[in-house]
């Protein structure tokens, strides 16, 4: 099945979400090529093992509508039937635009898919990850938004050669005041330990306790939507259905109730430790080690004794 993977550049290389879809496509033996969207100069996205086209956008324009026009032409000219993107901000916009152009609805939140007798069968996560919805796509064009961390990343050498670049020039709305959040310390996506905070840290000033613990453990810091919405932490640190999916070796949940929308982003962690003062908190149902305790008194004790 002719396949197009819509990829993204993150920090000068193909994003992990893109590499995960490539891995799955190789495993299924799909005839695929990649079209990668980004704004950086000559990123490392080329490989000898697959064709990649770099759709280079102007950083100061909101040009995804124009990117979609270019992708539409590729899909038409090469009779591509399966089009996939990681479920990110960019991926969601592009798949949405293309699904309109080809009058074929997408399947969102896909966590697995297979090809059976020429049909694409998808499993997508519903109900905050508590159930899997299986369906078959009956249209010629099939659009999938793949949840990050659904597959293992492919291991490939990437270089800044082996791809063609198409400059996207457009009259799209202008973007200004671009703000890049500073990334310091271990990152959520690839850290072996993640320490996450919830409303049970009681006050934003207590996040320093979380930072101290994380720094001792060399862990990345995450949080629930409740505290992100409250402005305690930037959105880039939100774990869950509408945030990041993490699979560290150890996930430490501090004062997190364990709503399904949070669980969906962390329950596949190898070992889950939860601290909550409520014995009945749902987080304990998915933890390997649960401690019924007050975060404010136990967290500093752990840090001190490490």
């Amino acid at each position: 099945m002719k396949t197009l993977i819509i990829g993204e550049v993150v920090e000068g290389k193909l994003s992990s979400g893109t590499l995960e879809i490539i891995a799955k496509s190789q495993e299924l033996g799909l005839e695929f090529e990649v079209a990668t969207v980004g704004t950086e100069e000559s990123p490392n996205i080329g490989s000898e093992s697959f064709k990649n086209t770099y759709l280079k956008c102007n950083e100061t324009q909101l040009s995804l509508g124009s990117v979609a026009n270019t992708l539409k032409t590729m899909v038409d000219e090469q009779s591509i039937s399966l089009i996939m993107a990681p479920s990110t901000y960019v991926g969601r916009d592009l798949i949405a635009f293309l699904s309109v152009d080809f009058s074929s609805s997408q399947v969102s939140n896909v966590i697995n898919f297979s090809i059976e007798e020429g049909n694409v069968i998808t499993s997508n996560s519903i109900n905050g990850g508590e159930s899997e919805y299986n369906s078959k796509i009956t249209s010629d064009k099939k659009f999938l938004l793949i949840r990050p961390k659904s597959f293992e990343e492919v291991q490939v050498e990437l270089s800044n050669t082996n791809y063609e670049t198409i400059e996207i020039n457009s009259e799209d709305p202008e973007v200004f005041d671009i703000f890049i959040e500073e990334k310091t310390g271990p990152q959520l996506e690839d850290s072996k330990i993640v320490v996450s905070a919830g409303r049970g840290m009681v006050d934003s000033s207590n996040l320093s306790l979380v930072e101290d613990l994380a720094s001792k453990l060399n862990a990345a810091i995450g949080g629930t939507r409740a505290i992100v919405d409250a402005g305690w932490m930037p959105y880039s640190q939100q774990v869950g259905q509408t945030g990041k999916t993490v699979k560290p070796d150890v996930y430490i949940a501090l004062g997190i109730s364990g709503a399904t929308q949070h669980q969906v982003g962390m329950k596949d962690s190898k070992y889950i430790i939860a601290i909550n003062k409520d014995e009945e908190a749902p987080i304990f149902q998915i933890s390997d080690l649960g401690i019924v305790a007050d975060t404010l008194s136990i967290v500093p004790k752990i840090t001190e004794n490490l």
């Binding site: 369906s135 249209s139 998915i286 080690l289 649960g290």
Partner: peptide
């Protein structure tokens, strides 16, 4: 263009330690 096949319950609960 999306034909429903089935829904599977994948909710997990662990028999972890609680102290």
């Amino acid at each position: 263009n999306i034909e429903f096949i089935d829904i599977k319950d994948v909710s997990t609960t662990k028999q972890g330690e609680k102290i």
